[in-house]
């Protein structure tokens, strides 16, 4: 059993009180209950489905008017990349992955513990916009292996065929009765796990993981403990 607890030295404002010096708070993976590696070959003896969590990333929800050039220019300069306007497109800069969520809504996924919220809110102040920190509210499960499409299709109505769900695309849909954002991952992370990122609300992450482990039993499943 591995404890994923990490000191965070970022918040100076705590429960509305301004406190001198940094507050140390603890981040905990929502998968704390199943934090032991699982490796269970399927009926053919192979591992057809691999998954692991990518915890503690910075998640920011950004809303604004795509026709407002001031807003779009501001976003480009902060993110180092233009906000995608094509539905369900994903673009990446060196620091940010930007997913289209709607014609006026994007999810920005950044490195761990980026304390950017105040700066973003100040920068976007001049346009009609909203910047919301979702970092503590959702997590990412990265899944791969040759059977990942079949495993996800066990509880997802989205067409996952490569013809329909392409690299650098995302899709908000339902998986196992839960709202998720699926992001097609084109780059290998060097550990043999690639294919799809499942962005899920923190309180549903455990449920989704257990469903995936169960659904993948037939083809063989490997669950790796989170790394940063």
């Amino acid at each position: 059993m591995i404890e994923i607890l990490r000191p965070r030295m970022k918040r100076e404002r705590f429960w509305g009180l301004l406190v001198k010096g940094p507050i140390i708070s603890m981040s905990q993976s929502p998968l704390i209950e199943i934090l032991q590696p699982i490796s269970a070959p399927g009926v053919s003896g192979e591992i057809g489905f691999r998954m692991r969590e990518i915890p503690f990333k910075t998640h920011v929800n950004l809303r604004g008017d795509a026709n407002d050039s001031k807003f779009m220019i501001c976003a480009s300069s902060l993110l180092g990349i233009d906000l995608p306007l094509a539905p369900n497109a994903v673009v990446e800069s060196s620091e940010w992955q930007v997913c289209w969520l709607g014609p006026d809504e994007w999810l920005l996924i950044g490195l761990a513990d980026q304390d950017v919220l105040v700066e973003f809110q100040n920068q976007f102040l001049e346009s009609h916009s909203a910047v919301v920190d979702l970092s503590g509210g959702q997590t990412i499960i990265r899944a791969g292996g040759h059977a990942w499409r079949d495993v996800l299709a066990s509880a997802c109505p989205l067409d996952l065929h490569p013809r329909a769900f392409k690299p650098r695309q995302c899709a908000q849909t339902v998986f196992a009765h839960t709202n998720v954002l699926l992001t097609s991952v084109s780059n290998d992370d060097g550990r043999g796990v690639r294919a799809v990122d499942i962005v899920v609300r923190r309180s549903f992450a455990d449920h989704v993981c257990r469903w995936l482990i169960d659904a993948a039993a037939e083809c063989g499943v490997e669950f790796e403990v989170p790394i940063e």
Partner: peptide
């Protein structure tokens, strides 16, 4: 009109 063809479950 934005995302394309999807299952009724999502609507």
């Amino acid at each position: 009109p934005w995302c394309g063809s999807r299952d009724q479950d999502e609507f």
